[in-house]
Amino acid sequence: MALDGPDRIIHADNLDVLPAFPDSAFTLVYLDPPFNTGRAQSRQSMRHVRIVEPDASDEASAPVVGAVTGFAGKRYERIRGDLLRYDDRFDDYWGFLEPRLVEAWRLLADDGTLYLHLDYREAHYAKVLLDALFGRECFLNEIVWAYDYGAKAKRKWPTKHDTILVYVKDPQRYWFDSSAVDREPYMAPGLVTPEKAANGKLPTDVWWHTIVSPTGREKTGYPTQKPEGILRRIVQASTREGDWVLDFFAGSGTTGAVATALGRRFVLVDENPEAIEVMRRRFAGVAGVEFDAVQGRMDA
């Protein structure tokens, strides 16, 4: 499946589609998978695990079928087993997510970046396991998206953030352009010069940004929709104009909407018919967007 045509929105189980795309096709992969809800998920029987030797000189070696060595020379199965003793629900979730992350690694260009958007309850498990898949040296950032909306807990600190883990394909070659990112206001503008206050500052790894307003222009009605401001910052920093962006848990299509606005190309995949209908409405007035349907496990 070559990337020489229009932007695409594909209705399919993503594992039925991803193997058809060529290696190193995307500069950015953004994933906002369903959080660990306990819903049964299909699995692949074939396992791909990245070999990372303690003194490896090739930091971007490819995933190898059947390998069992994880980061720092530890056995990958040992890492998985240790984690399972702490959370017996995690195995099913990782069995669902792992083969998709392996595909994300394969599809990333050498200068590419993965942004994995997770619930705070899963991020620490995913961090250890992504170190085993990508290599610990490929970890770039943990971004905290903080917001202040909705009910507040009374018996603990209210949980008002998501975690975004950022990994690169090659730590020596990844693309990142902080100058392209929209600047934000200083929290204490009186402590900087008027010129700096007027220009704003570069964001840090803590992003204060409201959720999608229930009455705002962005609202599509999709329950897990993410705000354009979050995706805009990601696309600005980690791609150039004309680069290809992939989101295979596309939901309401925010990644594609932002990519279009910034002059990037995109492929979106989702197996939920409601998500596809939301995206049909959202992209109805956008030229050059093609909708496809791939039959496979989603109909099984």
Results as ranks from 00 to 15, higher is better:
M1W: 09
G242V: 04
Y30K: 02
F21C: 04
V289I: 13
R217L: 09
R89Q: 14
P189Q: 11
G288W: 05
Q295N: 08
W105T: 13
V17F: 01
A60D: 13
G135R: 11
A72F: 02
K196Q: 15
V52P: 00
V65F: 04
D88G: 06
G150Q: 07
E290A: 12
P203W: 03
F21H: 05
T254A: 06
R233V: 14
Y147W: 03
L129T: 07
E241S: 13
F266C: 10
P214L: 08
G150S: 05
M187Q: 10
W145T: 06
E271Y: 02
V278Q: 04
L231Y: 07
P63S: 10
R50C: 03
D4M: 10
K201P: 00
P227N: 08
L133F: 07
D111E: 05
R78Q: 13
G112M: 06
Y115E: 02
T113H: 01
A300D: 13
A197S: 14
R217E: 13
A56W: 00
L140N: 06
Y120H: 07
A104G: 11
S42F: 09
D270P: 02
D119S: 11
W157V: 10
D247P: 04
G73D: 01
A109H: 08
V294T: 12
P189R: 14
N272M: 07
T220P: 00
T255E: 01
L18A: 13
L191A: 12
V206Q: 00
V286N: 06
L31F: 05
V212H: 00
V278F: 06
D243P: 03
S61A: 15
S24L: 12
H117S: 12
V289A: 01
G112C: 09
H11S: 08
M279R: 06
A153G: 07
V245W: 10
H209S: 09
A261C: 01
D162E: 13
V206K: 00
V235C: 08
D32K: 06
A126L: 07
L129G: 03
H117G: 01
V206I: 14
R8G: 08
M1V: 05
P33I: 14
H48A: 09
R281A: 14
E195K: 15
I79R: 09
Y167F: 15
Q41S: 13
T254C: 08
K154Q: 11
R265H: 12
G81T: 13
L268T: 11
P227E: 11
W145M: 06
I51F: 02
D177N: 15
D88R: 14
N141G: 03
Y149Q: 11
Y30S: 08
K219M: 09
G73Y: 02
L97H: 02
H48M: 15
L191K: 11
A2D: 08
R78A: 15
V258N: 03
D170E: 02
P203T: 10
P99N: 05
V289H: 00
R265T: 02
L114N: 05
Q41Y: 07
Y30C: 12
H161Y: 04
L140G: 03
D58C: 07
E142N: 09
K160P: 00
P54W: 00
D177M: 07
H11D: 10
Y186V: 01
V64Q: 13
K152V: 07
R264D: 10
R78H: 05
G190D: 15
A25V: 12
D7I: 02
P185S: 04
D16V: 13
D292K: 09
L130I: 15
D247C: 05
G66S: 04
D23S: 12
E290V: 14
